[in-house]
């Protein structure tokens, strides 16, 4: 455990262990990079697989993933879908959380339970019924257009219970004094929400935004069945198309996987603390 500063010998031992573990964790990533740098058919026809890229090394897989693999379009679709979902989820969650935390209204308890119970109905469970519904209203069809596809990809995720309760928890942490002071200052409910509650709970809301981003961007199952034409593939779906579909473009597929992970990796590096707080919100509180 994090105890006394270890002696030099012990420290070296730990560095060796930690480095070894790092290598193991990163090894699959290295393999992906190595395969992205190898010609697709060289990978396919290699008699014994190698941990190194097959020569001649091809550096252009990352750009070809865009030019030949058409990765740009799915990235845009994913970006737009993620943006809509995150913005909507944050807005709806802040509103609902505020109502649950500070307002009194009839049937409050029942409404809260109804919201919480949706956690028992993840999209995987409701998948086939939801797809059916969206088919009937024409959002999911082989001839779906841009608007229909974006609608199908985002509508079920415009609100989400986890965020509501996470932010409500944050609101409940606001000291009573602060509330009373705000009331004395003549803040309306919405004024209090905007000027006090949201700014004070910014860390919580920030964590939620990151989590929402992560889950919206990384989704697979719902887009897989709500998008019926390649034209509106998200990045994650595009990976499937790359997959092994096009063998002399194997390297592009692996490059695409790296590219797909980059936005989240950047977020992770920049907002490490907030992200970790969000991820651990349920575990350690």
């Amino acid at each position: 455990m994090a105890t006394d500063a270890p002696r030099r010998g012990a420290a070296i031992g730990w560095y060796v262990l930690l480095s070894a573990l790092s290598l193991i964790v990163l090894f699959p990533v290295w393999m992906t990079i190595a395969r992205a740098l190898s010609d697709g058919s060289a990978t396919l026809f290699a008699r014994t697989p190698s941990v190194l890229p097959y020569s001649p090394i091809q550096w252009d897989a990352f750009s070809r993933a865009f030019t030949e693999g058409g990765l740009g379009r799915p990235l845009l679709v994913s970006g737009l879908v993620t943006l809509i979902i995150v913005a909507a989820q944050t807005a709806t969650a802040v509103g609902a959380a505020y109502a649950f935390a500070f307002l009194e209204f009839p049937f409050k308890r029942i409404v809260m339970v109804l919201c919480a119970a949706t956690l028992l109905l993840p999209i995987e469970v409701t998948l086939i019924a939801n797809i059916q519904t969206l088919q009937e209203v024409g959002l999911v069809s082989p001839s779906q257009g841009f608007g229909e596809a974006i609608g199908a990809l985002t509508l079920p995720f415009l609100a989400q219970a986890f965020g509501i309760f996470l932010i409500r928890q944050g609101f409940l942490g606001i000291p009573k004094d602060l509330r009373d002071a705000a009331q004395l200052d003549g803040y309306s409910d919405l004024g209090f929400l905007r000027r006090v509650a949201v700014p004070v709970t910014r860390p919580v809301i920030g964590s939620f935004v990151l989590i929402a981003f992560l889950s919206a961007y990384n989704q697979y199952v719902w887009p897989r069945f709500s998008v019926k034409t390649n034209r509106w593939d998200t990045v994650q779906l595009a990976l499937r198309r790359f997959g092994l579909d096009n063998p002399d473009q194997l390297n592009l597929g692996f490059a695409a996987a790296i590219i797909a992970a980059l936005p989240v990796l950047v977020l992770l590096l920049v907002f490490q603390k907030q992200l970790i707080r969000g991820l651990t919100a349920g575990a350690v509180k």
């Binding site: 697709g40 026809f45 198309r241 092994l244 579909d245 096009n246 063998p247 002399d248």
Partner: peptide, 16 residues
């Protein structure tokens, strides 16, 4: 040109 031949849906992986 197999790649052109097969389009992006089918998959015979013999290089061009």
């Amino acid at each position: 040109d197999l790649k052109k031949e097969l389009g992006d849906t089918v998959d015979v992986n013999i290089p061009a």
